[in-house]
Amino acid sequence: MRQSRIAPCASSLLLAAACTLAGPATVEAAPSTAATGYVALGDSYSSGVGAGSYFTSDADCRRSSRAYPVLWAAAHAPSSFSFTACNGARTTDVMADQLGPLSRRTGLVSITVGGSDSSFAKVMALCVLPGQTACLSAIAAADSFVDGSLPGRLDRLYSAITSRAPAARVVVLGYPHFYQLHGTCSIGLRDTERSALNAAVDHLNSVIARGAIHHGFTFADARSAFAGHEICSSSPWLRSVDPLDLVESYHPTAPGQSLGYLPLLSGAV
């Protein structure tokens, strides 16, 4: 998916009017040598896909005013805030299109990345089709990629972040389980497939966490933040599968951003 080099910006003092078509990519406060700026990188889980209220300056990225980075910036008033996370972003896309705002003045970086590299969108598309074979085969292929190729991609990206923003605290947020097993869902995927998808998330998170810790970053586990609020729970914070809109499917809702990811980031900083 195309990545935008022009990111919407949010003033922490007036979020409602923060992202306009003419707004610059980064809003700088008074000159300061302190590393107090915030840059939000990553994929759809950071851009806010599924939460609605998308900024119109770049429709492909589906950056939402309800995404946790925007909410965190509004609550904490960083000296600058750059929101470059984009729907579908892989590690290579973050490297190519999102690192521009990083500098020695960056004090905080947040990121979710790895799911798009591992073709989770393709996995989901196959798993909604009838039959288990294609679903389970796609999950196995994703696991193989996570073991073989993803660690090197994450290492290169994490090294680039450190090089550009040496003073920043970097918080790598993981992905939640998709399903509560034996839950309230009476139709859709069977528990065999739901369990396999959750196990794939566990596998992905473990590789992401190892890479983050190796680079001295903080890993924040979204599985604990979303526990009890998966699809098929009584109060889900994730959008259920919709064969007619797979982009929105399996993504956090607005409550998932504000009650799941926002406290997760706040607790890690």
Score class of each variant (00 low, 15 high):
7 A>R: 04
8 P>H: 01
13 L>C: 13
14 L>V: 14
15 L>T: 15
20 T>R: 03
22 A>S: 14
26 T>W: 00
27 V>M: 07
29 A>S: 13
29 A>D: 11
37 G>I: 12
37 G>N: 08
37 G>C: 12
37 G>K: 02
45 Y>W: 12
48 G>I: 12
51 A>N: 06
54 Y>G: 07
61 C>G: 11
75 A>P: 03
78 P>W: 00
79 S>N: 10
81 F>N: 04
85 A>I: 12
85 A>R: 02
86 C>H: 05
86 C>E: 06
90 R>T: 15
95 M>N: 09
98 Q>Y: 02
100 G>Y: 05
102 L>K: 04
116 S>C: 10
116 S>A: 15
119 S>R: 08
119 S>Q: 12
120 F>T: 09
126 L>D: 14
131 G>P: 07
132 Q>R: 09
133 T>Q: 10
135 C>A: 11
136 L>Y: 07
147 D>E: 09
156 R>S: 14
157 L>M: 09
157 L>Y: 05
158 Y>F: 15
160 A>S: 11
160 A>F: 06
162 T>Q: 13
164 R>N: 06
165 A>V: 10
165 A>N: 04
174 G>L: 03
181 L>R: 00
190 R>F: 10
191 D>Y: 01
194 R>Y: 04
196 A>D: 01
197 L>N: 06
202 D>G: 05
203 H>M: 04
209 A>D: 08
209 A>K: 09
209 A>E: 13
211 G>D: 08
215 H>I: 08
219 F>I: 08
224 S>R: 03
225 A>L: 04
229 H>W: 08
231 I>G: 07
234 S>L: 09
234 S>R: 03
242 D>T: 12
243 P>R: 00
244 L>V: 14
250 Y>Q: 12
255 P>H: 06
256 G>P: 12
257 Q>A: 12
258 S>W: 05
262 L>C: 12
262 L>G: 08
263 P>F: 09
267 G>K: 04
